[in-house]
Design a protein around this nucleic acid. Structure first.
Length: 294
DNA sequence: CACCACCCCTGGACGC
DNA sequence: TGCGTCCAGGGGTGGT
């Protein structure tokens, strides 16, 4: 499931191949995965790809910075991939294919269709409609800004960090990994995180994400970068996918709970709850188990 | 306003 | 071998 490191790995493996290339043809097999104008022109036919950008988990293919330079935003969702191919795509679920002027193909494939493509007349439209709504990118957020965002909600910190409008880039894997590395219980109210904790979270998050990018991301089922290569960071996960297994720090069996609809794995010994004046009254199994830990 | 449940969708794991 | 069931979850939406 592509999160920031996987999306960054896609961008890095793609940039040298597509930058400066002209789109000579667009094959649209499923127009319904496109939001906005789903015509070939809006999908960059005849245009030269000027640059690739990333914000959080989203990729932008730009044809320039001008107000008349159309662009695409690609979101990979759970199972999406953006791959460069030297042969025509023959796999199933290849929804959109761009033929480039060097004879290669760029293929958007997404079996589960949780991802999609958004078309915009210009980069400023993309910014206005999508990227300005997102939180800071997880690789560039400052401790002060993260602290301010966390202060605005008393949701569990895991839920808050998954919220792309609060912070862009983290998904289920890296939130669990980050909270373990910071020793923070996933049910800690976001607004109970102190300035000092925010100052510690940010560098740990950068290190985690940079290590994951260097490893090509995590491949737990089917993630591949634009060259078709899997990542290897999953071998260094400390909690994600390890429910019931011994904690790599203290040996205690890792716990699993369901939070914000996501499987959440953590160590009850190494990840402490942070006391807070704004903890809600105990109601339901989630907050109940949280209160027991204080 | 904040938050949660639900839904979208398919492939893979698993049990019989 | 084959079929049914369950599970994975990012993000949008509608309900509380």
């Amino acid at each position: 499931m592509p999160e920031l490191p996987e999306v960054e790995a896609v961008c890095r493996s793609l940039v040298d191949h597509v930058t400066g290339r002209r789109v000579v043809r667009v094959d649209i097999r499923r127009a319904d995965i496109v939001t906005g104008d789903a015509g070939e022109t809006a999908l960059l036919r005849g245009r030269r790809i000027h640059s690739i950008r990333r914000h959080g988990k989203q990729i932008a293919l730009l044809t320039g910075d001008a107000a008349d330079a159309p662009c695409l935003c690609v979101h990979l969702g759970m199972t999406g991939s953006l791959c460069r191919r030297l042969d025509p795509p023959d796999a199933t679920h290849c929804h959109i294919t761009w033929r480039l002027d060097d004879g290669s193909w760029l293929v958007f494939r997404d079996p589960r269709r949780f991802g999609g493509i958004w078309t915009f007349p210009s980069p400023s439209d993309l910014a206005a409609a999508r990227w300005s709504l997102l939180g800071d990118d997880a690789l560039s957020v400052t401790p002060a800004r993260l602290y301010r965002q966390l202060q605005r909600t008393r949701r569990a910190i895991k839920t808050a960090l998954l919220d792309q409008n609060l912070l862009a880039g983290l998904g289920n894997i890296y939130v669990d990994e980050l909270l373990f590395r910071c020793g923070i219980h996933p049910l800690t109210p976001a607004n109970a995180v102190s300035r000092d904790q925010a100052r510690r979270i940010v560098p740990r998050m950068r290190t985690l994400l940079r290590q994951a990018i260097a490893a090509g991301g995590s491949t737990t089922s089917d993630f591949v970068n634009a060259d078709g290569h899997a990542g290897v960071f999953q071998t260094r996960h400390r909690v994600y996918g390890r429910a019931g297994l011994p904690c790599r720090r203290c040996g205690a069996p890792l716990e699993t709970i369901r939070l914000a609809g996501r499987t959440t794995v953590f160590c009850t010994t190494c990840q402490r709850a942070t006391a807070s004046p704004t903890v809600r009254k105990s109601k339901g199994p989630a907050s109940g188990s949280f209160l027991r830990l204080i």
